[in-house]
Each structure stands twice: as C-alpha cells, then as structure tokens.
Design a binder for these strands. Sequence first.
DNA 1: CTATAAACCTGCTGGC
DNA 2: TGCCAGCAGGTTTATA
Length: 321
Amino acid sequence: MPELPEVEYTARQMQESVVGETIDSVSVFWERTVSYPVLEDFQAEIAGRRIERVRRRAKLIVVDLSGGMLMTMHRRMTGNLLLLPSHWKVDTSLREADPTRWKVQGPRFTPDEVRPEDTDLLDYRQPFYCRTCFHFESGKLLLFNDLRKFGKLQLWPCEQEATLFAAFGPEPLDALFTPELLGVALAGRKTPIKQTLLQQEVVAGLGNIYADEALYYANIHPLRPAGSLSPDELYRLHEGIVAVLSSGIEHGGTSFSDYRDLQGRRGENANHLKVYQHQGESCVRCASPIERIVVGQRSTHFCPTCQLVLTDRSTIKAGGN
DNA sequence: CTATAAACCTGCTGGC
DNA sequence: TGCCAGCAGGTTTATA
C-alpha cells in the first residue's frame, strides 16, 4: 500500500518528531523483519545511536544515524510506523499466555494513564501486528507494525548508500525528472506502460494506485507499449505522475485498508482518486463506466473512452475533457 | 533478456 | 451459518 506519497508523508512526520532521539534498544517480535545484518548485529550496532535526519528514497524511509550508519525501512504491503508517547509501555504477557495469537498479532501496548493526547491511539491497546519496537532514551517508542510481515529493516554504513540505491530510477518529484528523461527510460520497451511504470528502475516510487491515476490523468491506455508514447503523451504522463503524487502527499496518503500515519491517523487521498477501485462507476470526465482489467498480474483501472487503446489522443482535435 | 509465476504472510470477501 | 478459494497496494527469486 505505501507508495511514494505515503512514504514521503511518514518520512516528513518522522523528520519533525524523532530527529534528536537516541535509540536505547530494539525489541524484535518477528525476526525476519530485520533483513540485514543478522539480528544480533543489528541490535548491537544500532543501540546508542542518535537519529540525525529522516528522508525518503523510492519507497524506502532512510534514517541517518550518528556514527556514520543509516537504517532503511521498507513497508511493502502493510507496514506502518507509529510513534507512542513516553507514558506508553509494551506488554509482552501474551507471549506465554497465548503463543499462537502472539506469533500472528505481536504484543500489545498500554498507557500508564490515559491522557488527552492519546485520543487517536486508544484503538492500539489491543495487539496490532507490531514486529519491531525502538525504545528511545526519552521513553518514546517507535513501532514498525506490519500485518503481512513483508516489510524489511536494514542497517548499513553510510558509504554503502550509493550501492543500496543503484537500481532506483529518477525521483519523480525531483526537478531532474523531465518528460525527456521519462522518454529515455521508456524507449524501446514493448511491455505495457502500466507494468513499466511499476518498475522502480524506470521511475522510483510509483505503485499500483498512482500508476493507474497517472495514466488516467494523461489519457493513456494502460496496455500501450511503453516505448510507443509520443512526445506529447510523454509530456502529459510526466505531468500526471507529478500531479497525482503531489496530490497524494498533500492529502496525507491513501488509506484504503492498512495505511496509517505516524500518529495512527488515516490519509484522505482515497477521496481524490479518479479510477483506482472505481470500476463500474462513471468517469468524472466523460461518464463512461470505469473498467478493471489485469495487467502483469496487477489490477488495473482505466476509462475506456478517455484512455483509447493504441491511440495518440494528441492527434485528435479538441478532445472531450 | 523478457515474461510469467511463485513466494513471502494474514485478513477479508464472495460463492456455494 | 460455515468453509474454502481467491484476492489485496510490493519486491525478489525461480523457471521457461
């Protein structure tokens, strides 16, 4: 679920609220969440380090730590970060009381006393799939929650950064990302544009939701061969990518099911999507029913009228929107 | 190299 | 009501 806007929004919240915190220790409740280095080294190496900066690259949250290390956090499908105030404590009693439930749901967290600022957090008093808990010296807790356990945490020396990010394409919200650069990345590719946009080496950070929305914005059919786009279509697609990602960040991300922000709140961007999960509803531009097909094993939503297959709409005079 | 499928996990939905 | 197959926003790895 978390694509660029959700990761960017959370990284900005972390930059606001956890810079300066020192990590005292890390509790790991699902070992495979830590994918590098081995668990014992991860825990030993990260203890005592101070958080100096939090940023984003592609769909990774990057936490710069004192002493020349960085931690990457990838949320995959259902991963979320949650910051708990210092009067909240972890309760691991379920581990012995109900091992089966513990393995699936993880620990629970409870406040010493309920304070006014806890309003959005009260639902979290039941276990909610916490996989890793960072204990700060201030007493605050940073949780990595992940229902499906696909998310990954890694700790690397800063010198490794270039290698870690080598396979990522351009950042779509960076000024260096232009229609021309997009054209170069897509040139010669015969696979459907929808599939190609999901490849992180082409553009970093797009996922299934925003790829569909960007193609709708640009009036491009998802099955168009990626290398067949005209200069005008590349211009519109570039514009669409920037527009839908910016909108996603502005509205705090898209919360269809699992995504929550650092304070446990939902994002509002689902209210601003035009085609994703709108199959059968009327296109807001032409009123045709939105269709859903499968492209490269992924659900794909589009307007069959606005996004004409294998047609460059720039050649059609004064199109209907 | 491309392309498709399977794997990693749990919860939810829809069909029977 | 109950059970089970199938599906979900991501990425990597294997197989053809």
